[in-house]
Amino acid sequence: MIEVNELTKRYGSVLAVNGLSFTVRPGLVTGFLGPNGAGKSTTLRMLLGLNTPTSGTATIDGKRFRDLGTGLRHVGALLDAGDVHSGRSAAAHLSALARSNGLPRRRVDEVLQEVGLADVARRRIGGFSLGMRQRLGIATALLGDPPVLLFDEPINGLDPEGVLWVRRLFRRLAAEGRTVFVSSHLMSEMENTADRLVVIGRGELIADEGVTEFAARGTNFSVSVRTPDTAVLAGLLATEGAEVTSDGYESLTVTGLTAARIGELAFHHRLMLHELATHTPSLEEAFMELTADSVEYLAGQPQ
């Protein structure tokens, strides 16, 4: 169980995290979402005692992380796959960490096997690809067999097979009763993995709820209609109060009316429809809509 309470971090005049409160429960995969610069990494770093909060608390099972002795046995974390010394081999890197926590030597071989790096265990990390480094980071997180796991952008650099493997791993870890907290700036990644979402923007909480509830938040769903009589139908729909835009030849996008009502109108006026489809907002769109106001670095906008 991770508890974040009124957590705030200020860097000079910048509020990186502002009064953030949420809870991450065991047995579930919880996604931690937000645009770039939303404060996700800062929050995770404060959870791990790497950065000191300006105010507020972040605890893991009721304790501050810095009060724990052997961190790996309590919390496994992958913050940045680059947080390694490139001159060491994967095996040496992991065995130094295992020794610091008094973990048996065989754990190193076990986690290397689990992440698929057993064959390159003796090679220098400097020669690893980003995907291999991510796997090494995941191996580090699993080393102490911890009840709580934190992953910051773990999918970066993984190939499609690796992405599938990571998703299954997260599901399995959660099914074993562990707390799994995974940050990402990509909503689509969480759609397939997470049970719950904590969404932040500009350091503030936007949502803390189940994935389905979150998706239902997207308000601007639309209906696409294809008909030979676009002009007639458009006129009819407009009188019913709908907003109609033409998408080109024989195709309309309608907002403000349900697909059922559009079909009914067409039927009464003997208009032929070739297609009638409700376009439900995806998780991605719900996310974009909710974080639109809080994007820190927006492309193509005058400053």
Binding site: K63, S100, E176
Partner: peptide, 29 residues
């Protein structure tokens, strides 16, 4: 499930930390 609950905090033994730092120093060419 034993892994779901947090074990009581165990202090990091200085002997283990020495071993870890020793490994770090001598694993660099």
């Amino acid at each position: 499930m034993s892994t779901t609950t947090m074990a009581a905090p165990t202090p990091a033994r200085i002997r283990n930390l020495f071993a870890a730092e020793w490994t770090k120093l001598w694993s660099l060419r």
